[in-house]
Design a protein around this nucleic acid. Sequence first.
DNA 1: GGTCATTTGTGCGTATGTATC
DNA 2: GGATACATACGCACAAATGAC
Lengths: 250, 250
Amino acid sequence: MGGPRFEPVRAVRAYERVVEQIEEAVESGALTPGERLPSERELMVQFSVGRSTVREALRVLQARGLVRSRPGDPNGAEVLPFSPVVLKKSMTTLARVSELSLGELVQFRMVLDATAVLLAARLRTEEHLAEMAAAVDDMKAADAADAAAFGAADAAFHDAVARAGGNKLIQVCTDVVRAVMAGLVEDRLARAPDREALMRRGVAHHEDVIAALRAGDGPLAARLTRQSMYDYYAGHLPAEERAALRALLE
Amino acid sequence: MGGPRFEPVRAVRAYERVVEQIEEAVESGALTPGERLPSERELMVQFSVGRSTVREALRVLQARGLVRSRPGDPNGAEVLPFSPVVLKKSMTTLARVSELSLGELVQFRMVLDATAVLLAARLRTEEHLAEMAAAVDDMKAADAADAAAFGAADAAFHDAVARAGGNKLIQVCTDVVRAVMAGLVEDRLARAPDREALMRRGVAHHEDVIAALRAGDGPLAARLTRQSMYDYYAGHLPAEERAALRALLE
DNA sequence: GGTCATTTGTGCGTATGTATC
DNA sequence: GGATACATACGCACAAATGAC
């Protein structure tokens, strides 16, 4: 008793150790985006593992969005800047396997987008406001039949708001959830009979939000944002989910 | 002009096509958690690819948390139920490479946890309230020196609240962000001089939240939750981040 | 624009350790 | 304990793609 307390060891795969080392180098900043990893044959020498081990490690790193490798590239795998595509992917998986309802997604965005505008009311600059106004102009200019252009402009607006709010986590999450929602319901929305009216109302709402932000009235901007989200999606929700959403309109 | 509109083709790797097919089978429910994939040798026959291709595909699927394979397992890779570990991983990466501040994380949880309790005030059952009460009891029972036990009980409380709120996305996200925060600041909190006072205050706050939920007063419960989060972390934040948080206390 | 060395993508054979029966 | 089937890992060979000269 009182001897050394040995810890149970779990067999850790060779490729995992390769992943850990490269991952640490990337996340710590020792490798910056745009830099290149050594070639696979060079890596197998440095780690003293086989090439298949190196390749499996690179696949995992690629799946995590940290590097990208192309066939024949003499420079080796490229270190990538952070991108939310991996988050989007795993959240899309979450939506599919746990069967997230549209109502849950709308609820999530109602809360986070409203928070973003609330924060933006304190921190917004003239540049931010100009970006938002430009996005709204694009929404107006979009052909009524071109749902993709309208959606892209809408996304640009919300991204500008989120950036103005200054919380990168909220910015990424709203972006991810918006993309997931678009993938789930874009065709349904594009065929809605009252689509044009919804689009016009959305533009008007966005202009009201800009006015509130310019005036520095965060709570008003947040209310407008929640109401806008509710109006846009409520028609596509069953009654009980609509009720859950109204609980957030305060 | 007016001819067929050809789309640009991107060379898609063999292992990617294997990943897509298995992923679709898992996410569509054709393969349910606990089921086994065919062995690697069987898969290389079915997809008519080489062994390395199969293995790289399995690595990607494993990195996405869909399957797990163990050496020597005669049954082949196992299909896994959804777990938020992949989301945790990518959000931790986000936190590291985009240098998320503690303030941004706290802000995020203040908003989403407050929303969860607001929703829980409408939907909570007696079972939910009993779970919350049990978690608070565990927090009280935790030794003052055992930060891990206290944290686990606190996590159980918030998880019960999030489940009562009925939004699975909010539940997962708050859980993920709590884990990320714990990884970043657990040692700092464990060594705080006023740790015991913070713990006592946290317990009292949680009991107030339960009382508000029992009374069905969602807005009160939400305010209490935001205030509790602020009190617990404000001491570890620089002044300007504290100010941004106070903007959410309303 | 073309040639060529290099690299990645892929397939295959083999040895080894492990889990299950 | 032994037999069997499996995953892990190594190393080589060839095709396709890339980048540099």
